[in-house]
Computed example of a mutant assay.
Amino acid sequence: MTDATKEVAAPTLVPPPAVVLVEPQLGENIGTAARAMANFGVTDLRLVAPRDGWPNEKARAASSGAAHVIDNARVFATLEEAIADLTFVIATTRRPRDMTKRVEGPEAGLAELVAETRTGPTGILFGRERWGLQNEEVALASIIVSFPVDPEFASLNIAQSVLLMAYEWRRVARELPAAPPPDQPPATRQEVTGLWRHLVSLLKPTGYFRPEGMAERMERNLFTTLSDAGWDRQQVRTLRGVLNHLDPQRPPRSGD
């Protein structure tokens, strides 16, 4: 066993990230992804609207004994529900995006995720077999991680992607230095999404999102800005309070 292999094989006390598969199509792909997770001690599998339903016996057979991952897998109707409790999320994609989302390589991206584990649960998003993640799904993440693959043959299947990320997570996790928890817990993705929706609801009646053909992209870019700001929960609560006070539909309080 090489020194590098010993380092990856050694135990880690860092909680592993959730693995979120968005609309996976084949049970076999879910199973092989679960096997890759189990290889590196990653066990929280979350499925968003799997095409062939769940549970899936083909997934169990393809997992090659990773039954604990398959049995504990959770199914969600939407990606927002699947990541609602997470405070830091990586989206894996190889395609350039028309958004200002930060892109990192696996080593830097997983190092950031491991560091964020001190403050709350984390996760990694993997897209559909045929076309990956959509722009609005990538926008929900904290950062993008892209693999340095050969551009002449850049396609990776789900299990390969999960294996690469799980390996890098375990390698980096062993090097995490001890650190005190933050004074305030970070905002979850659900709380950041709520802040964005609240702000959009106030801006839409003012005609801010124009021209009409650009409205969706402008909303997504606004979400990216809010998503990348690193809010803690108290900051989000404070901003929501400010927005409530600015809402023209808010009933006036005594003394206003």
Rank of each mutant, 00 (worst) to 15 (best):
residue 236 V to K: 00
residue 12 T to Y: 08
residue 161 S to F: 06
residue 35 R to E: 11
residue 75 V to L: 12
residue 149 V to H: 08
residue 16 P to A: 07
residue 212 E to G: 14
residue 125 L to D: 05
residue 101 K to P: 02
residue 97 R to K: 14
residue 86 L to Y: 03
residue 194 G to L: 01
residue 232 D to A: 00
residue 187 A to L: 02
residue 250 R to P: 06
residue 205 P to Q: 00
residue 191 E to T: 00
residue 180 P to W: 07
residue 83 I to R: 01
residue 180 P to D: 13
residue 146 S to T: 14
residue 7 E to W: 08
residue 184 Q to G: 04
residue 135 N to F: 01
residue 14 V to M: 04
residue 237 R to T: 06
residue 51 R to T: 10
residue 103 V to C: 02
residue 242 V to F: 15
residue 96 P to Q: 09
residue 254 S to M: 06
residue 82 A to P: 07
residue 169 W to I: 02
residue 231 W to G: 03
residue 22 V to A: 07
residue 155 S to E: 10
residue 85 D to L: 10
residue 176 L to F: 13
residue 150 D to K: 09
residue 41 G to T: 06
residue 135 N to C: 03
residue 145 V to F: 05
residue 83 I to A: 04
residue 117 T to N: 01
residue 245 H to V: 15
residue 220 R to N: 08
residue 98 D to P: 15
residue 43 T to C: 13
residue 50 P to N: 03
residue 10 A to K: 08
residue 191 E to D: 10
residue 84 A to V: 01
residue 162 V to I: 06
residue 119 T to N: 12
residue 134 Q to A: 13
residue 86 L to S: 03
residue 18 A to Q: 00
residue 147 F to I: 14
residue 69 V to C: 08
residue 149 V to T: 15
residue 210 R to N: 12
residue 230 G to M: 05
residue 149 V to S: 13
residue 189 R to E: 00
residue 112 E to P: 08
residue 221 N to P: 00
residue 35 R to M: 05
residue 212 E to C: 05
residue 191 E to K: 01
residue 211 P to L: 09
residue 36 A to D: 11
residue 80 E to L: 04
residue 114 V to F: 08
residue 95 R to L: 07
residue 59 A to P: 04
residue 2 T to Q: 12
residue 205 P to R: 03
residue 137 E to S: 11
residue 34 A to Q: 02
residue 183 D to A: 14
residue 158 I to M: 12
residue 60 R to L: 15
residue 121 P to R: 05
residue 144 I to D: 00
residue 68 H to R: 08
residue 149 V to I: 12
residue 155 S to L: 11
residue 108 A to E: 14
residue 74 R to A: 14
residue 56 N to K: 05
residue 77 A to T: 15
residue 173 A to T: 10
residue 196 W to E: 12
residue 72 N to M: 08
residue 155 S to W: 06
residue 51 R to L: 01
residue 90 I to L: 06
residue 19 V to Y: 02
residue 178 A to K: 04
residue 44 D to F: 10
residue 137 E to P: 08
residue 146 S to Q: 13
residue 230 G to E: 09
residue 129 E to Y: 08
residue 175 E to Y: 12
residue 102 R to G: 11
residue 26 L to T: 13
residue 66 A to K: 14
residue 208 Y to Q: 05
residue 208 Y to V: 07
residue 207 G to T: 05
residue 75 V to H: 10
residue 106 P to L: 02
residue 120 G to A: 02
residue 103 V to Y: 00
residue 66 A to M: 14
residue 145 V to P: 07
residue 231 W to I: 04
residue 119 T to Q: 09
residue 10 A to G: 09
residue 108 A to D: 09
residue 70 I to D: 01
residue 204 K to A: 13
residue 185 P to K: 07
residue 69 V to Y: 02
residue 172 V to G: 06
residue 24 P to W: 08
residue 244 N to E: 09
residue 89 V to G: 04
residue 152 E to W: 04
residue 27 G to Q: 11
residue 71 D to I: 06
residue 219 E to N: 06
residue 55 P to N: 02
residue 12 T to A: 02
residue 127 G to N: 12
residue 248 P to Y: 15
residue 139 A to G: 04
residue 40 F to Q: 03
residue 5 T to R: 15
residue 49 A to M: 11
residue 223 F to S: 00
residue 44 D to T: 03
residue 11 P to Y: 06
residue 236 V to R: 01
residue 224 T to L: 09
residue 26 L to I: 11
residue 138 V to G: 04
residue 37 M to N: 07
residue 214 M to Y: 07
residue 142 S to N: 09
residue 181 P to V: 10
